[in-house]
Design a protein around this nucleic acid. Structure first.
Length: 430
DNA sequence: TCTGGGGTCCTAGGACCC
DNA sequence: TCTGGGGTCCTAGGACCC
């Protein structure tokens, strides 16, 4: 006798933390609640808050345990900022002024000069990221990571995951996260990831939206095409040239017409997306494909004039990416560089080695070869180093193995020659 | 007032091998 | 003399996402 499997509806949730970075900052600085606060502004250190408050209010003790008591007027205002950088998150009070993520800080300063500007603190955000994800996994184990503040959750087989289309479980998760962290999130539950992602945006902040496939025409089709995760600014603009603005208008297109103008693969995907079709599973584990480090300079640098500075930065990026690889236990064999010129044009070069490595010297050498293949006509704004074709260090073919003679010799040949000053000294770079 | 840093995936051409 | 395809790897660029 075989147990009868109940007919389960596929229910997928998308969970999005509300104004995540800014909300985490408000946990430390509750005195900023309700005020316009933006996070971002590049690497420039803000004035140390405690030093500032000690100077301005010298009549009492100020320690790390008093952060929540620092008067609001001590916090740096965005109007005093000059330099590069973009906003990563803004509180809802700041968003009311039109300030939003990915906006240049200087533009935000014009829209809302009184906004408080805080530097990013990834340590803190990672801590709360791990915390809320572990809370969710304790309730519903099938979770796909989509960055620090977003996840997909498969509700289908979770006890209670079917009740009210997922609303009951969504409410439970929302409550557990808020009780444990003080942070709020928005959750959308739908038949698939595509629709769940759109649903979670419908009722922000601290909202829940439940979507069934029958809601498609009423709730999805009136939305702009850009609301579909996977339609960016380029695709949106191209769709507009065909008179297609809403998802409903996209759904009215013929599949063949879309594949003709947008390519076989993307065109077919557009058609499916507009009809709410998406079979992608919730993927709980995945291996990294590449790791990289890049930096935008405070000022654009000149290849010859700033040669020494560029060389130092280049070496540091190689060391950083090597340290990342080693810390996480990966090695790679495609070493690449990325440059952005002052006109924002980007170029990349890469170089596939005969061996896997996580060694800063080997990376620096291979990346140096890439650099030689670039023609420098303009000042440089950004430099990056990337290592791809990753495998787990433990799974990598060993260069010393007797059965891998060719790899072994390649490894030796590629080792940069030792130098008595710095092992990174290389006259022909930059 | 120009536009961060970390990723993934796709395309398209060329080399090279069978 | 003319004429193959398929498969895989590598490289460069670009769209998109968080």
């Amino acid at each position: 006798m075989v147990a009868q499997t109940p007919a389960l509806m596929r229910r997928i949730a998308h969970l999005d933390m509300d104004a995540f970075y800014a909300s985490v900052e408000l946990l430390r600085y509750p005195q900023l609640k309700g005020l316009p606060v933006v996070i971002g502004g590049g690497r420039r250190r803000e004035d140390d808050l405690l030093a500032q408050v000690r100077q301005r209010y010298p009549d009492r003790e100020w320690g790390i345990e008093h952060l929540a008591e620092i008067p609001v007027d001590v916090f740096p205002r965005i109007a005093g900022y000059s330099g590069r950088g973009v906003i990563t998150t803004a509180t809802y009070a700041a968003r009311a002024f039109g300030v939003g993520s990915a906006m240049g800080v200087m533009k935000a300063a014009q829209l809302c000069p009184q906004a408080i500007l805080l530097p990013v603190d990834f340590e803190q955000y990672r801590h709360y990221s791990r915390l809320f994800k572990s809370i969710v996994r304790d309730i519903a184990p099938v979770v796909e990571d989509r960055g620090v503040d977003e996840i997909y959750i498969d509700f289908t087989h979770v006890p209670g995951g079917q009740r009210e289309g997922g609303r009951v479980l969504a409410r439970l998760i929302q409550k557990c996260i808020t009780d444990a962290t003080g942070l709020t999130c928005s959750i959308g539950v739908a038949p698939n990831k595509l629709l769940a992602k759109m649903a979670s945006e419908m009722n922000k902040p601290n909202g829940i939206s439940i979507l069934f496939i029958d809601d498609l025409t009423e709730k999805i089709w009136p939305l702009a095409c850009r609301k579909i995760n996977g339609i960016g600014p380029k695709a949106e603009a191209k769709l507009k040239t065909h008179g297609i603005h809403t998802i409903g208008e996209l759904a009215a297109c013929e599949r063949d017409g879309l594949t003709k103008h947008f390519g076989k693969s993307y065109g077919a995907w557009l058609f499916d997306a507009a009809h709410g079709v998406d079979d992608r599973p919730v993927v709980t584990e995945s291996e990294p494909v590449s790791m990289s480090r890049e930096t935008t300079f405070e000022k654009d640098l000149h290849v010859q004039h700033d040669r020494a500075a560029l060389g130092d930065i280049f070496t540091r990026l190689c060391q950083q990416v090597a340290a990342d690889l080693q810390r996480k236990g990966y090695v790679g064999k495609t070493i690449g560089i990325k440059l952005r010129f002052d006109n924002f044009q980007s170029v990349t070069r890469d170089n596939t080695l005969a061996f896997f490595t996580a060694d800063p010297l080997a990376i620096r050498q291979a990346a140096g070869q890439c650099l030689k293949r670039i023609e420098f006509k303009r000042r440089i704004r950004l430099l990056g180093v990337r290592v791809g074709s990753l495998v787990k260090a433990a799974d990598a073919p060993s260069p010393t193995s007797t059965s891998e003679k060719s790899l072994s010799s390649a490894f030796v040949v590629q080792e940069p020659p030792p130098s008595k000053d710095s092992p990174y000294e290389q006259a022909d770079l930059f």
